[in-house]
Design a protein around this nucleic acid. Sequence first.
DNA 1: CCAACAGCGGTTTTT
DNA 2: CCGCTGTTGG
Length: 672
Amino acid sequence: MTRESKILSGLNDAQKEAVSHGPGPLLVLAGPGSGKTRVLTHRVAWLVTSGLARPEEILAVTFTNKAAGEMKQRIRNLLGETGGVRAQTFHSACLYVLRRDGTKIGIDPKFAVVDEEARRELLVKAAKEFRLDPPDAAAAGKAISFAKNCLVGPDEFSKWMAEKIGEGSLLSQKMAEAVSGCEDAVPEVYAAYQEMLKKVNGLDFDDLLFEAVRLFRERPDVARKWAEIWKWVLVDEYQDTNRAQYEWLQLLVKKRRNVTAVGDPDQSIYGWRAADVENILRFKEDFPEAKVVALEKNYRSVPAVTSLADRLIRHNTRREEKTLLPVRPDGGEAQCLSFPDERAEAEFLAEKISALHSGQGLSWSDFAVLYRVNALSWTYEEALAKRGVPYVVVGSVGFWGRREIKDVLAHLRVAVNPKDVVSLRRICFLQPGVGEATAAQVAALVLAGRPPAEALSGAAAKPGIGKKARSSLARLAKTLEVLETGIREKKPAAELCMYAAESTGYMAKLAKDRSEEGQERVANVGALISAAAEIDASGGGVAELLERAALASGDSDDGGGKDAVRLMTLHKAKGLEFHTVFLVAAEEGYLPHYQSGYGPALEEERRLCFVGATRAKDCLYVTWCRERTNWGRTAWNRPSRFLKEMGFEVNSSFEKRRLPGTRWTDRIAAEL
DNA sequence: CCAACAGCGGTTTTT
DNA sequence: CCGCTGTTGG
Ligand SMILES: Nc1ncnc2c1ncn2[C@@H]1O[C@H](COP(=O)(O)OP(=O)(O)OP(=O)(O)O)[C@@H](O)[C@H]1O
């Protein structure tokens, strides 16, 4: 078998047609479990083996860093190596471009990527100038993020917001909620916040997209250059792209038109973050010559699951119908269960998982518990722990988001970007005897244009600074100088990490804590040094390490390959699949969430429920509780309206209802 | 000026 | 339950 035919084997006709589409735009529109992601990866491999594209000419855009990693792995399995294919998120791709060509629109190439934590800090400070408290700062931050993702700058903001509110779209609904009470101040906060970002020479996540679009718009020659580099662009989860991503993509592909978009409008669940499902619906107009392929077979789920999901999603009004037939025979089960309270619900689930694990020879990682909000996870954690069932909460902070990692890296960030006052403040606070007053002195000197090491020594000499602070600031200044020369001389990142951790006394401070948590921190810093060494070995350095850290800082712990039950939000479950899924807390107020109970937001809640249900391959248990206690408050619940919409007969008069999957499905189908 | 602690209120979902 | 705020004692 030739390499090319090997890539096409294991695909149905429609999939083959999409994978082996030649040059020109291609749109794959299909429901869950139809093999969209599979098509995308096989298409990348096919473009290479067919000789149409060289690996380095391909950009495959994914929704998360994790999905990018998996895509690379699958491409490696098909081709033997990734050979320069870039698989990454829009944000990473834009960062890559801006690092290289940002100077052409006046961006200092040493800019730092401002992560969520630093962003909050800057926002709070910007909001304070206008007498807004932190909650209002967070609200303004949401509005600012919306604006940037819609390519609206501070100057146009007021006008834009006035137009948006009252428009009736999901975004306008969310905007109005976010800024209610502080509308008037938001434009000013936006401007002040951008000013601060400029001062610290930083770009936040949204700026990466915003600035990359500005670059391509203002410098068509640069856009052309990148269009020649990435001659083939493929985008997964296209239904969840926002305006900025859409625009950037258009600028990149409009000339060569070798663009593949893959997605499912029914799985658009990020409207609240400015994603616009119109982007995928408009593809045929943007690219009139586009080939459109529909995948109509569901390989993932048993009929009991697909029919229930289909019934649910039909309740959305703004929607184009699709055919999706299960190829799997009847089997498995889909049930709705009710419980008196969340303890009973959690115990049931733990017991069921234990039983299926030992009884059916399933792995722990074949199970997922999906919920609407992170706050619900602890109930299920408790019950699983009690039964000794291994589990991972996928929402928890991952390696790159951990405090000790960010602490050590903050030293390197300051050494690379001398204007990074946020990181400088952070490392000041790590020193014994240093608090707000001292850190403010240092920050003021840097904002006045002094280099960090000099500012530290300068502040140490000021009157009113304690003796302890004085000596630790001097030590920190020395460390920074060494790091700066180390970076100039391109010393390995691992070496510099180790130096930053040791010479500042940070390691010693961590080591003093003998608790389990403390020991873990020490080990994590060790792991950071190993990670840095790996980056060094693959030809990178400090810049690459910081890049990786900035983009991954928000990534959650996915448990790696650990055999454990996965607990996560419905949003995080997108794109995944499990043998058995527990869709818990299917109650009015949680699903749909009480803030999204009407209008376009409700339709998105329904899609969220749809995404959750369609993660199940064989078994789906949708559960709800009559009574739920949260933060010490007990509330009565009504079952989610989505239960009825899925075809379950729900009434509060029975404790537990058990219906065998397929037979039940047939009966309901006949009734409808 | 800084660190430690108690009390309160509340974040939907995340690159 | 967790993070932020304001208080105290060193
Ligand atoms: N032609 C095929 N033959 C057998 N199995 C297939 C085929 N195509 C896809 N599958 C399997 O179906 C499942 C779903 O595939 P994939 O994740 O690519 O679907 P998807 O359309 O991206 O789903 P979703 O939109 O729900 O994320 C996977 O387990 C995949 O291996």
